[in-house]
Amino acid sequence: MRVIPAKLVLLACFALGAAGVCVADVPTMVGRDAPDFTLKASDGANLRLSEFRGQVVLVNFWARWANDSRREMPALDRIHTTYGRAGLVVLGISIDEDLRRAEDFADSMKVSYPVMFDTGSEIGRDYQLGRLPMTILVDRSGVVRYSHLGYKRGDDRLYLDHIRELLRE
């Protein structure tokens, strides 16, 4: 078997990076059925992903120690307010181990969409979380159609493009 020289791999990574595709950002979940989960939301209700079949679902994994989460949550709240009536469901999932502090953080963000807490980290494993925040879009038939790692200003516009497309389907 031929061994690919390390320099060549680095060069390929650099080229991919320049094209806006980071190796760490490869959406591994896209095209697969979204693993189902049931979690308790901040209002006390238990929510199961599969019960939203037929609707477009945006799932946002976050942690209070991920600074980008703090910037992303207000943007997601605006999306939820605008597109909720059109059939979009937004679910926030904290993977913080410290439940109390995660709840306090969620309260301070004052978002209107359901925020849930996965202290067991099983769901994070199912969704192959690499970097936080991570946002995925699940279509009406329960398939992951878009995955995004991290957040920078303007990324919510990318989400909107995909959301509109999925809502039209």
Binding site: T38, L39, K40, A45, N46, L47, R48, E51
Partner: peptide, 8 residues
């Protein structure tokens, strides 16, 4: 350990 939704 099973959490029940309102529907269930």
């Amino acid at each position: 350990n099973y959490l029940y939704t309102a529907r269930e």
